[in-house]
């Protein structure tokens, strides 16, 4: 029993310990690691991934997966860039709307057509990617600088980056929904046993429908931030975002099979991965090693593999202890 508890605690809070250790390492090794500029640009950049990971977190907790988030974000960035001349609100609405539409398709395919989430969202991934290229005419779409649209990605709230503030608010809402609403608890129950949940009288399809729509909407919002931050809608961005999001969720201690997870530690997972790549950049900057972007990809891949392997072992032990 106590052993089970210990394993559970490590599974849940291990990411926080690792995060603290990594920050300490960076602080000791690099002069400007904890500089105001580095911290704020880190938060600004990773806010997009945080939003995508939040949606992914809910989907994974139901025992599903959403592979389409990266290309949906790309589609959202294009849609919002096209709408940006009309102002902030139309830009936001276009990006989020495109995301919600993709999420709606995923939700329908999974709950109505009973497709496996892996297959359904893989199809949406392709379709969204194609739509983004079509919409953008096969090139990046510059955003309007006059309408104030760029404030979403580049602006500050006092001195705090606006996209990071959006992510924080989204995580607060997500945490509230997960821990203090019936829908949130149903998300976890479905992941822990879908048939059992249905027999318990939960409306499983409705809850699953909601998480896929939410994941799409959040990916769309991430796309808006992408366009606003870099000044252009980018139809070919978003490749590999789904892997980053899945990794962040898993690093955060959420079971890849669903049924157990946390929103807060998912955020910690995003930060851990974000800081890790930041550290790799610093290493490059120090000149000790020279890592091309390709090598960074390889290192990221290996890191994710290690994390997933560790979690699989931990999960097995945890389920055995149950």
């Amino acid at each position: 029993m106590n052993r089970a508890r210990l394993v559970r605690i490590i599974g849940t809070y291990g990411v926080l310990i690792a995060l603290a250790a990594l920050i300490l390492f960076g602080f000791l090794r690099y002069d400007r690691f904890l500089s105001f500029y580095n911290v704020m640009s880190l938060l600004r950049y990773n806010s997009m991934f945080a939003l995508v990971a939040l949606g992914m977190c809910f989907v994974i907790m139901t025992g599903g997966i959403d592979l389409s988030v990266g290309s949906v974000a790309a589609l959202g960035s294009v849609a919002s860039a096209l709408a940006s001349p009309y102002g902030i609100v139309p830009g936001l609405a276009a990006g989020i709307g495109a995301g919600l539409a993709a999420g709606l398709i995923n939700a329908t395919l999974v709950t109505r057509a009973n497709l496996m989430p892996f297959i359904a969202t893989l199809a949406t991934m392709q379709a969204a990617s194609g739509s983004a290229l079509l919409l953008a005419g096969n090139q990046t779409v510059s955003v309007s600088y006059e309408s104030g649209f760029t404030a979403i990605g580049q602006g500050n709230f006092w001195t705090f980056p606006i996209p990071a503030a959006i992510a924080v608010v989204a995580y607060l809402i997500g945490s509230l929904v997960l821990n203090y609403t019936g829908t949130g608890r149903a998300v976890l129950a479905i992941g822990g046993g879908e048939d059992a949940s249905r027999l318990m009288g939960l409306r499983t399809d409705r809850v699953k429908f909601l998480v896929y729509v939410a994941s799409g909407g959040l990916a769309g919002l991430a796309g808006v931030i992408l366009a606003s931050q870099f000044g252009a809608g980018q139809p070919i961005e978003g490749v590999g975002w789904e892997l980053f999001a899945i990794a962040a969720v898993v690093v955060g201690g959420t079971l890849l099979t669903g049924g157990s997870g946390s929103v807060v530690t998912t955020l910690a997972g995003v930060l851990l991965l974000g800081i890790l790549f930041n550290v790799l950049n610093f290493e490059n900057g120090m000149g000790w090693i020279s890592l091309s972007a390709y090598w960074q990809s390889v290192i990221r891949g290996l890191f994710l593999l290690v994390v997933v392997l560790l979690q699989a072992r931990l999960t097995r032990r945890r389920l055995n202890a149950l």
Binding site: N179, G182, G193, M200, G259, S260
Partner: peptide
């Protein structure tokens, strides 16, 4: 037994007829 082993005893008993306070779950 058609319950969800990963979730707490309380959730397994109360899921589907949760008690709320100010619209949020009253744990």
């Amino acid at each position: 037994i058609n319950l969800v082993p990963l979730r707490s005893v309380t959730e397994n008993i109360c899921l589907g007829r949760e008690q709320r306070r100010y619209g949020l779950l009253d744990w």
